[in-house]
Design a protein around this nucleic acid. Sequence first.
DNA 1: CCCTCACTTTGTACGTTGTATAGAGTACCG
DNA 2: CGGTACTCTATACAACGTACAAAGTGAGGG
Lengths: 266, 266
Amino acid sequence: MAKERSSGAGDPARTLELLWRDGATVPASRRGPRQGLTVDAVVEAAVGLADEGGLDALTMRAVAQRLGVTPMTLYTYVPGKAELLDLMLDAVFLKMPRTASGVDAPWRERVTAVADENRALYLRHPWLAELRVHRPPLGPGVMTKYEHELGAFEGLGLDDVTMDSALTHLLGFVQVAARTELDARAVDRESALSDEEWWAAHEPLLERMFDAERFPLASRVGEASAVAYQGLYSPDHAYAFGLARVLDGLAALIPADPPGSVPQGQ
Amino acid sequence: MAKERSSGAGDPARTLELLWRDGATVPASRRGPRQGLTVDAVVEAAVGLADEGGLDALTMRAVAQRLGVTPMTLYTYVPGKAELLDLMLDAVFLKMPRTASGVDAPWRERVTAVADENRALYLRHPWLAELRVHRPPLGPGVMTKYEHELGAFEGLGLDDVTMDSALTHLLGFVQVAARTELDARAVDRESALSDEEWWAAHEPLLERMFDAERFPLASRVGEASAVAYQGLYSPDHAYAFGLARVLDGLAALIPADPPGSVPQGQ
DNA sequence: CCCTCACTTTGTACGTTGTATAGAGTACCG
DNA sequence: CGGTACTCTATACAACGTACAAAGTGAGGG
């Protein structure tokens, strides 16, 4: 069995050809019976399955069933599950909606648009947040997304290396924020206990164990946060707060930052 | 089979008692044969296994074998794997080294110490980065860590809710940074292809597919980054860059920030 | 025209996972 | 000393990715 949740294990050449596949590349004359499916159909079925039930629901057997085919048939189209995940990633990157902010738009607006697009992408395809991707599949989707997002940092006086770092930093933030939000949702869905019920079940016992004098800050701040959002955690607030922090952090790098800007420390 | 990588599924009361277990709580007189192990021993074995081989190596069978016991024996000590993960998390949180920065130290220094501690923790226990934890186990480790880390934000003029948000934001950043670094290492270890070999295998094919005119920014910036660090990615740089951004972002929230400033009460 | 053989599709099988279930052995309490 | 609450073990199940081999299909070469 291959390692789960890793990606891009197999033959690089084969994977690249699949990533950049287009109708024209088909050899047009094959020996055996014509294929009843297409790589696109397989990828689409897989994405649909993962969208609905997460990575746990994405099994080769399930994909095959959705396509009306036996599991092993998939291996004619795709080398294995790891490569299928690469194709899925590239596919959703390629198709994601991109805000066309002009180069004349304020940089905070442009960068915010990139963050929002990515957050929306994670919320539409929750399995993306579970994926591990070092050495991302270098397909058209990944490239198009990278090209587009770098655009938000172009013309700000950043050198090329810093542009890349800044983008990575921004996307990293969006990823944790989305992951936290999605984890919270997943727990709600799976656990049969709502947040309130969970607290109700924990509180009496916790009071026996927990010494408020031993953890003064934790009790004070924990209490205040629990009151502020009527629960454990507010994803929208965390995103808004974090994005503002990221923007202010980047602002310190950007030479001229005309009116409306927030003063920087230090 | 239970959901993988989720945590805290079982009976809350039982889990809480396990988290806050101490020698004294043992009833001292039990009916059957004395237990040959302890919960601590199980947790320690599990942590050791996960440290060495990641979450993939952490199987109930492997833990049992390390303890010289059959797999099902573990279920006398621990309700299931999810709860074991909770106990592992709390245990390493409790034992992690904590820098004792005085309240008089500059806030950037204190916050940096918290970030560094957490990065070190992830690097020592890579499986932490793979874990999903919404509704964290409310054990002594989690509480102690939270209490300690809030201290870095105390006396800066932030209200309680903002202190919590700031800490969450900081820890989120450290987590992505660590995860990215660990993913990179894992790929290097598993893939039998070094980064250079991987590039060498991809480049010729990529040049056939990839149109530099279609992705001008991507080629320029990608090239520059690849040259700057002699590879795909430099974890140390990403961490340093990101931490600086986070600190600057937080600075915008903190009222007075002169060098060597005295913390002000709220 | 038909045979050959590359190719698609399928069925079966293996090793691995967490843990349900049932049985066997042990030692304290009444 | 017997009953019983407990520990530990053995076996079993369903689900996973996919190796392997057999069966079916249809275009190209003679």
